[in-house]
């Protein structure tokens, strides 16, 4: 059993395991997990455990990776509730509001991609249902246009935010707050934390 090629083959297993541990992006880690599974199957087969190698290839490489890819894809997401017609409630800003929302959403996407998150938009017909969805924990955050009177109060500066994004999850709020304060892009929307009292 003590062949000279045995040691380098077995040494491949901790090597790939270390590479897997040091991955940051979850999807890259999944691919490296596939490589680890292939190497592990090789090691088991070389050591004489054919059944273990087969199980590793079938379950560890195929099933686990597919299930994990689906799980990571559905969990690393920020669900943002928006009004179905964001311009309908505000009166005369309908021309300028929509591009500003689009720009804000684009900024948000680029910020979230840095943290390997996706942005998923959920449409709601009116403001009341939007807030109810946030309370019911259906969405992680909502993006609402500011009320008309508060819009009047701020002297209409060109880059003053007319959208308010309310975030339910404290960690997400911290991440976005620090990213927004450090980056140079003008925030076209205000960030607010959702204070939950009823539980």
């Amino acid at each position: 059993m003590t062949d000279s090629y045995l040691y380098p083959i077995v040494a491949l297993l901790p090597l790939t395991a270390c590479i897997l541990v040091f991955q940051v992006n979850p999807y890259h880690a999944l691919v490296i997990r596939g490589i680890l599974g292939a190497v592990a199957a090789l090691v088991y087969a070389v050591l004489g455990a054919a059944d273990v190698a087969l199980t590793e290839a079938l379950v560890g490489t195929m099933l686990a990776i597919t299930l994990y890819a689906v799980a990571v894809r559905s969990s690393l997401v920020m669900r943002l509730g928006v009004l179905e017609s964001a311009s309908a409630t505000s009166l005369d800003v309908s021309q300028s509001a929509q591009p500003q929302l689009e720009q804000w959403l684009d900024n948000l996407r680029t910020l979230l991609i840095k943290h390997h998150l996706r942005l998923e938009l959920v449409n709601y017909p009116d403001r009341q249902r939007l807030h109810q969805a946030l309370k019911d924990q259906d969405v992680h955050a909502i993006c609402t246009p500011l009320e008309a009177e508060s819009l009047e109060n701020q002297a209409i500066a060109a880059d003053s935010p007319i959208y308010c994004t309310t975030i339910r999850i404290p960690r997400l709020y911290d991440i976005l707050q620090s990213e927004l304060s450090s980056s140079h892009l003008t925030p076209s929307a205000r960030l607010a934390q959702f204070e939950e009292v009823s539980l």
């Binding site: 596939g34 292939a38 004489g48 054919a50 195929m62 597919t66 890819a69």
Partner: peptide, 30 residues
Amino acid sequence: DDWMIGVVGVIILSVGNAALMLLAHILKRL
């Protein structure tokens, strides 16, 4: 000269590629 390991090797050869295709399609959808 071990028939058993050989069978496992052939199965892994086909299964590993199938896993790769599944993962590629999921990544594309992503």
